[in-house]
Computed example of a mutant assay.
Amino acid sequence: MKINLSQLIQGQKGIIEDFDIDHVPLKLLEMGCLPGNEVQLLQVAPMGDPLYLLVNDSHLAIRKETAQAIQVTISDAS
């Protein structure tokens, strides 16, 4: 099932499937937010923004708006 990254539940893992290149900064792509890579939602800030993620053994904080442009498939290993 494809959902956007902002819909993951804390602790849940997903595989990046696709993203809207117009809304995802190049820096995120350079840090491993690419199709086929696993992402895990570690924590959500108290007001719901930003999201704290684990991608390729790197910890990233991204805005919810950006996370909505990244499509993931929920991983069975969640």
Rank of each mutant, 00 (worst) to 15 (best):
D20Q: 12
L34R: 15
V72G: 13
R63W: 06
L8C: 14
C33D: 00
E30G: 09
I70E: 05
E30Y: 10
I16L: 10
P35D: 10
K27I: 01
P50I: 01
A67G: 13
G48T: 10
D57A: 12
V44G: 02
M1E: 12
V39K: 08
S58P: 00
L41A: 01
I15G: 00
A77H: 05
S58L: 10
Q68N: 13
T73V: 11
E17T: 10
L60F: 02
M1I: 09
S75E: 00
L28Y: 13
D18W: 12
G32F: 03
M31Q: 14
I70T: 03
P35E: 06
I15L: 14
P35C: 07
A61V: 06
G32P: 11
L8N: 09
Q40G: 00
L54S: 08
Y52C: 02
G48I: 08
E17A: 03
A67K: 08
P50S: 02
L29I: 14
L60H: 08
L29H: 06
G11A: 00
I70C: 09
L42T: 01
M31S: 03
G32M: 06
D49M: 03
C33V: 13
M1T: 13
D57Q: 12
M31K: 13
Q43Y: 07
E38N: 05
A69M: 08
K13H: 06
C33F: 10
R63P: 05
E30M: 05
Q7F: 07
R63L: 12
N4P: 12
Q68V: 00
P35I: 01
G36S: 11
T73W: 05
M31A: 10
V72P: 14
A61E: 10
T66Q: 07
N37I: 07
K13R: 14
M47K: 15
Q68G: 04
G14P: 11
A61N: 05
L53T: 04
I70M: 04
V44C: 03
F19G: 01
D18T: 12
P35H: 04
S6K: 05
I74G: 02
E30H: 05
I62Y: 07
H23P: 02
N37R: 15
G11T: 00
G36N: 05
L51Q: 08
L29Y: 04
G32W: 03
V55G: 05
L41H: 07
D20A: 04
S58V: 06
H23S: 12
E65Y: 09
Q12P: 08
A45S: 15
P46K: 13
A45K: 11
N4H: 15
I21A: 14
L28P: 14
S6W: 01
L51A: 03
Q68T: 05
D22L: 15
L29T: 02
K2N: 14
V72Y: 12
I21C: 09
K13L: 05
I74D: 04
P50D: 01
I21K: 12
R63I: 00
G14K: 01
A61K: 12
V24H: 06
L5M: 12
L8Q: 11
I70H: 06
Q43M: 06
M47L: 14
L29S: 03
Q12C: 02
D49N: 15
A45F: 14
I62F: 06
I9T: 14
F19K: 04
M31F: 09
K27L: 01
Y52I: 10
P46A: 11
I15D: 00
H23D: 11
I3Y: 11
V24I: 13
A61F: 08
I21Y: 14
M47H: 11
